[in-house]
């Protein structure tokens, strides 16, 4: 049993990792078939990962309601949202059409499921992120102070790009458009490139460690 619990996952990771690394260098059709099948498998397993994410949220709020923790009423609202969306998405059209799942439109006409999506989910998510517009403004006011050389550089680059990316800035000071493009294409590109190289070295090192079983944190969960 210990082999199954401890060693088997490591063996699987090792074998899968080595095979799919080497696959890249092998153009033979057999290796291509392996790649096709492998990617399809991951695609299907991805579906279950989706379930995993959803059930954990379900669980957390169920506990909250059960124990009547502070704010459990909001958890009820959350459940209400789930149930209504599910009911509308799965059953309303199941009765009417031949499709098994929820479609936002059928033959160009919006369905009830599409209505929920368009008039609740879209504005809610959109607004949640739109709030950041206000916070970025107050962050700029609070913290964009030329306290040091570094801060001054950051602030100058930010102000130039803010001017160079909008018509009014380019209209008042046409040169900001050119400077913005230069900052983005040259200065910014070089920094991002260095970060990309650094991060990729880190990611490759991590992947190698995972394949060789030196890094096992991803296995997480599952008490032994």
């Amino acid at each position: 049993m210990t082999f199954l619990r401890r060693q088997l996952p490591l063996v699987i990771t090792f074998v899968a990792g080595v095979i799919f690394t080497l696959q890249y260098y092998v153009p033979h059709p057999k290796s291509e078939i392996l790649l096709t099948e492998g990617s399809l498998w991951i695609q299907i397993i991805g579906l279950f990962a989706l379930v995993l994410g959803v059930t954990s949220l379900f669980h957390i709020h169920a506990v909250k309601i059960k124990r009547q923790e502070p704010g459990w009423g909001y958890s009820l609202i959350l459940y209400f949202g789930i149930v209504v969306t599910l009911a509308v998405g799965l059953f309303v059209q199941w009765v009417g059409g031949q499709h098994p799942g929820g479609k936002e439109t059928i033959d160009g006409a919006m369905t009830a499921f599409g209505w929920i999506y368009t008039y609740t989910m879209v504005p809610l998510q959109g607004t949640m992120f739109a709030i950041l517009a206000f916070f970025i403004a107050s962050a700029a006011y609070r913290s964009f102070r030329a306290r040091s050389k570094e801060a001054a550089l950051l602030l100058t680059a930010a102000v130039i790009v803010m001017m160079g990316r909008v018509p009014l800035g380019e209209y008042l000071l046409p040169v900001t458009g050119d400077i913005t493009l230069w900052i983005l294409n040259v200065l910014n590109a070089s920094v991002r490139r260095a970060i990309l190289i650094g991060i990729s070295l880190g990611a490759v090192a991590l992947s190698i460690k995972i394949i060789f079983g030196l890094e096992r944190a991803y296995l997480g969960g599952g008490k032994e």
């Binding site: 209400f80 799965l90 098994p100 998510q125």
Partner: peptide, 24 residues
């Protein structure tokens, strides 16, 4: 808080519906 929890609920519902369709 009300709007926010409703949003989480609806997104979860949406994900489940889409996942169900993908199973097919």
């Amino acid at each position: 808080k009300l709007a926010e929890h409703l949003y989480v609920g609806i997104s979860v519902g949406y994900t489940i519906v889409k996942g169900y369709e993908l199973v097919f």
